[in-house]
Design a protein around this nucleic acid. Sequence first.
DNA 1: TAATGCGCTACCCTTTAGATAGCAAGAGTG
DNA 2: CACTCTTGCTATCTAAAGGGTAGCGCATTA
Lengths: 98, 98
Amino acid sequence: MALFDLLGRSWALGIVWSLSKGPQTFRALQADCGGTSPTVLNRRLKELMATGFVERGEQGYRLSAAGAELSDLLRPLGALANEWADTLDVRGRSSTKD
Amino acid sequence: MALFDLLGRSWALGIVWSLSKGPQTFRALQADCGGTSPTVLNRRLKELMATGFVERGEQGYRLSAAGAELSDLLRPLGALANEWADTLDVRGRSSTKD
DNA sequence: TAATGCGCTACCCTTTAGATAGCAAGAGTG
DNA sequence: CACTCTTGCTATCTAAAGGGTAGCGCATTA
């Protein structure tokens, strides 16, 4: 399940999600992804491009055909995310230990 | 997008995916997730239970109703994963640098 | 030529992942 | 009861990824 491995890295899902709203510049993407560090953003972008989900255009980065296909599958997931957003309050990053 | 944050952690997607095939014991899950370390597996499991996607039953861990719903949305993603498995050769863990 | 915004890299510190060992508890067997 | 397995899980330590900040080279604009 290589795809799950790829998408299971920080901001990979977020980038695809953000790009599904339209092409974005590096910095716009950075801002849209909650101010991710350029280090990580660039790393993910490279991976996403290497796997052919993202490509570069005039307006910056954008989803490829495959990327669009992927984001289509992600959409219902995003809907679920919003639906559960207030119910489940993930956190975890701070209360991982019990 | 708290859900994306949760699922964007290592093995979170894999665990849900694995559990969608039926309830599993801790160790079976561990084996099915490519021999993940118990440290991480237990961490993810706690998070997944805290958010109500996974629960414990007689046969070990299993998906809750919400978890099943989630895995349903993940299924087409898994299909895409298999479809692209040989085409895109993710890796990246080693060839990230150009 | 200075000022601005851009994509991106370097550097460094924190957090997470991953590997390994092993414990307490329960079930089964002689 | 002692012995052995298996199971869930914690502890410990090292490696890797994430994240913050500074800043460079380049193009554009004034």
